[in-house]
Design a protein around this nucleic acid. Structure first.
Length: 607
RNA sequence: CGGGAUGUGGCGCAGCUUGGUAGCGCACUUCGUUCGGGACGAAGGGGCCGCAGGUUCGAAUCCUGUCAUCCCGACCA
């Protein structure tokens, strides 16, 4: 391809719309243009990158025996109602774009494809003899994100590879899950990404085990916690750890303490010399469910600990989801809401875990009983300080006893960097930021049961299929690669996903010898099967060098002064090493490098 | 959805306080000189100043509304 024909438009200044380096570079180098918030045009250069990433994904998945398919993006609402996800995905903070057709039937624009694929499996998979199967597709997904961000990192329309496997047994599912784990590691490695695999929350997709693949980068949206020995790594949403030991509270009879205006843990501690770990704080939240009745919650946490809302949402869903439908939202209860329910104001700032259910009687739309949960750190305190449920009053020396029973205890706290690890308390968790580029799940039978995807076993029984699902954010991966592979001059694509492998730059388009030699080399390299750009523009050499660096072509051949003697310069983009060599030796020098790069063989190993 | 900021040629910005009919750099076109790290000179083309109302003799500028974009948050009482 000739640069003069490439519609290459590069920018000298950083566009105002971009915040992080990969987003700026993709815009400046002419890879993407924003059409609307979270909606981008993939320009020809980026499309080549995306096709390369897709090709690697295809090769690795095909090698595992997975089958490529293509499923509809327009999906009928009733399919989602059968799985119980329509309300959760469309109401509240739901992320599914949805619309009505001319008959008034509701449709959603696919944010993911469990429903469609499971319905298909229900029709097509009748016998254990057909199992296991693993189907995948690479296509555009639509998600009405709360806040689209950072270019392709979090778009409302993006390219995803999603795969779904079906099994006759859980053991078989685990086998495929392990195979996909390995395939994913190869895919990311071949794409030149340094990734770390972490334990993850399975979120709205559901299911049991799940693992995320994180590209480590400062701009990452996720916090990941790892142990120094590398044996533990988890997304903070999911991470578990040992909390610090609490400071013991002196043995004393339970008594009230006047705490005027002291509504925060900090004020309480500085006012009376308590340690935050001696306090039980009480959070009042409201869980909105699909069935319309809102459920008030009382969550007790040790004062020095933070709530992990994902863990709480999972716990609430597990306890009430069966009868109440999907959990739509979890938010703190406000004084306004109490008033609208016709309830008396509560003494916020002095709440205790034994806050009476009687306070909810007469609520208009709320379940008139609290769901009470406690984090293990609060539940295990012998004596503690807590609110007395009267304004400006706390209780000191409170205990869990029949008059103040300890709620159901579970892990609800957010693990923090510096916490001790479960597997080895001498290890302390370290924090890093990550961009989630892949996620694999063992779904179990959640969807197959909801959508009645059943098969006949060897013994003739009728059972629901076991399922797994596996995603890769293809367009996000491309940007993550830039985030990890760039320098001050621009992008440094790994050869395996670069839009072109080599660029031939004519230093002076006025010099007919240079032009002639460059044209010859352009032809030869193409003949040898390389993906070559020829910068034939009538620009000064400096402009061409700057652009070549910016768009990040891994190898550059400069045809310049030495052309008279048949000499050219070969430059590696990453690292910038240069060597002069004869034009006749060029192909022999370049070909092995690029062939190795294509396979990702030069890429460093990953954890 | 809450908070903050910004909308002026393709891109980056100034002008707005103190109203008088739009400017700079880059990019683009032509010509000349240059030609190995974003050249120089000359001459050009391109703007409903986000949109809609209002105030005024007169609005990019003041007022009201609205739309869009970006950032932070969605959280401990």
């Amino acid at each position: 391809m000739r640069v003069s024909r490439l519609m290459l438009v590069t920018l000298r200044d950083d566009p105002a719309e971009a915040e992080i380096v990969s987003h700026k570079l993709l815009l400046r180098a002419g890879y993407i243009r924003r059409i609307a918030s979270g909606i981008y045009a993939y320009l020809p250069l980026l499309w080549r990158v995306l096709r390369k990433v897709s090709a690697i994904v295809r090769e690795e998945l095909d090698a595992t025996g997975a089958l490529e398919t293509l499923l509809p993006q327009l999906q009928p609402a009733d399919l989602w109602e059968r799985s119980g996800r329509w309300a959760g995905y469309t109401a509240g903070e739901g992320i599914m774009f949805h619309l009505e057709d001319r008959q008034g039937r509701e449709l959603g624009l696919g944010p993911t494809h469990e429903e469609v694929i499971t319905a298909l499996a229900a029709e097509l998979l009748r016998s254990y003899r057909q199992l296991p199967v693993n189907l995948y597709q690479i296509q555009t997904k639509f998600r009405d994100e709360i806040r689209p961000r950072f270019g392709l990192m979090r778009g409302r329309e993006f390219i995803m590879k999603d795969a779904y496997s079906f099994h006759a047994s859980e053991a078989c599912l685990k086998d495929t899950y392990a195979v996909m784990d390995q395939a994913y590691r190869r895919i990311f490695n071949r794409c030149g990404l340094r990734t770390v695999a972490v334990e993850a929350d399975s979120g709205a997709i559901g299911g049991s085990a799940s693992q995320e693949f994180m590209v480590t980068a400062e701009a990452g949206e996720d916090l990941i916690l790892t142990s120094p020995d590398g044996r533990y790594a988890a997304n903070q949403e999911r991470a578990v750890s040992l909390a610090p030991e609490p400071v013991a509270l002196a043995d004393q009879p339970c008594h009230d303490l006047s705490t005027p205006g002291q509504t925060t843990i900090e004020q309480l501690c500085s006012g009376h010399g308590f340690d935050p770990s001696q306090i039980v704080k009480v959070l009042l939240l409201l869980a909105r469910f699909a069935d319309g009745a809102d459920q008030p919650l009382i969550v007790s946490l040790r004062g020095d600990q933070q709530l992990n809302e994902v863990k709480l949402a999972n716990a609430v869903q597990a306890r009430l989801g069966a009868e109440r439908g999907s959990l739509l939202e979890l938010a703190p209860i406000t004084a306004d809401q109490l008033e609208r329910q016709g309830l008396e104001p509560l003494p916020f700032g002095s709440l205790g875990p034994d806050l009476s259910d009687a306070l909810l009687s007469g609520a208009r739309d709320w379940t008139p009983r609290f769901l009470r949960l406690a984090d293990g750190t609060a539940a295990s305190l012998e004596r503690f300080v807590c609110g007395a449920n009267r304004l400006d009053t706390h209780r000191v020396g409170a205990r869990w006893d029949p008059s103040n029973p300890c709620p159901e205890s579970l892990d609800l706290r957010a693990a923090q960097p510096g916490d001790r690890c479960h597997h080895d308390p001498s290890q302390h968790l370290e924090a890093a930021r990550g961009i989630e580029v892949g996620h694999i799940f063992q779904l179990g039978r959640k969807y197959s049961e909801a959508l009645e995807a059943r098969f006949t076993t060897e013994s003739g029984a009728d059972e629901a299929l076991w399922m797994g699902c596996y995603g890769i954010g293809v367009s996000r991966l491309a940007q993550a690669a830039v985030e990890q592979n760039h320098d001050r001059n621009g992008i440094c694509w790994p050869v395996s996903i670069a839009p072109f492998e080599v660029i031939v730059v004519v230093a002076s388009s006025q010099d007919s010898q240079q032009v002639e030699l460059a044209e010859r080399l352009y032809g030869e390299l193409q003949q040898a099967g390389l993906e070559v750009l020829l910068d034939d523009r009538n620009e000064r050499a400096g402009v061409k060098f700057k652009d070549a660096d910016l768009i990040g072509i891994p190898w550059r051949v400069v045809v310049g002064r030495g052309a008279t003697d048949g000499q050219v310069e070969l430059v590696e983009r990453a690292g910038g090493s240069k060597r002069d060599l004869s034009a006749d030796e060029l192909l022999a020098a370049l070909l092995p490098q690029i062939q190795a790069g294509r396979q990702g063989l030069n890429n460093p190993a990953q954890s």
